[in-house]
Design a binder for these strands. Structure first.
Lengths: 189, 189
DNA sequence: AGTCTGATGTCACCTGATGACATCACTGGG
DNA sequence: CCCAGTGATGTCATCAGGTGACATCAGACT
């Protein structure tokens, strides 16, 4: 199958991230990314649906793992706890390399279009979790609320984890658990 | 000030919604919208930053009113209750004309780009509410969680309200209150 | 009447994105 | 050892979204 230099997709991803960090998202043209990766712009769009997607192609695998984790939760577990278990797996993957995550986040936060795409990815994860909850028998409204609020708390915690000092809050999962506890306290008030 | 036919912004908005309903968002070109409104494409972009924004220009006012409502909440009120009060005002405006809301929602749900933009608008509302909460003394983490989960519940309820039969769940605010009660029950479990 | 102002038209141009077709390297069969 | 098939890539053409620069025209103000 391969020819020329294999691994064009990976090279494009690295080239894109590097250029986005250097000049910013808008200032980087697809032709530049492709040139740095040693391919043409047309090839870029064969690997990624659009210019933004190059920063989000890991989301599909993340979602798969989250759904697998949710499927492994024993039946009868509360909806919110089930979502929390699924997001624990996400946190494990996401929380692996804080420095990389910070660089990526800096690029995303600096551009409106990228923030929109990130929100869409989290929304897709939430919708998938809600679907899975419904399929395991959870009431539809309860499933939606558990998934949406669970993912919302996850996002808040993720941003705090990124913003925290190098020593503090080292484990993303701990930050998420703290945030979840805060939600429980809030709603109980 | 105006010359030619005044009210170009409003005409463009109506023309856009009509065309989006007829052919869909992607199939509608900015030039078509402008032509139906009796202006040129260049003028469209003077009124709306991009093609999507024509469906979301009410969001700014919505956010203002929500913040005003939040400011009117007596100090000492719990963060989640304060957010709920702000979203009640949003619901009052949003829940005015269900048929219009349904047509608009059908257009938005049919297109990925539009869904992304809608998520961004809700995220902006959430961020603004969290900011306001912090300024009235709420702890930062608590403010983020209250705003994010509050808006998340609001979104879930809004979608259910749109999907409900013509007679059922007539008042959006009731649907939201039901959903909020469900969140409290979920987190208490 | 003269001038100023603001919204619009006109023109040129860039970039993201896509379709159609050619091309090249590698694969597997003969 | 050659050859047809396959898939990723290059090349070319084209479209739509979006923006800057400049001209223009109607009404407001003096």
């Amino acid at each position: 199958m391969g020819r020329w230099e294999p691994g064009a997709g990976g090279r494009l991803r690295e080239a894109a991230l590097a250029l986005f960090v250097e000049r910013g998202f808008e200032q980087t043209m697809v032709a530049d990314i492709a040139a740095r990766a040693g391919v043409t712009a047309r090839t870029f769009f064969r690997h990624y649906a659009d210019k933004r997607e190059v920063l989000f192609d890991g989301a599909a695998e993340l979602q798969e793992r989250a759904l697998a984790a949710l499927a492994a939760v024993p039946p009868g577990t509360g909806a919110l706890d089930a979502v929390a278990a699924a997001l624990d797996v996400v946190a494990e993957l996401l929380g692996d390399d804080r420095e990389f995550a910070r660089r990526r986040q800096a690029v995303i936060m600096a551009d409106t279009e990228l923030r929109e795409r990130e929100l869409a990815k989290f929304a897709a994860l939430s919708a998938a979790l809600a679907d899975a909850l419904r399929q395991r028998g959870t009431d539809a409204l309860e499933a939606d609320i558990a998934a949406e609020t669970g993912v919302a708390v996850h996002r808040v915690a993720y941003e705090r984890w990124l913003a925290a000092g190098d020593g503090a809050d080292a484990d993303l999962r701990d930050v998420i658990h703290t945030a979840l506890a805060r939600l429980r306290a809030l709603t109980a008030a």
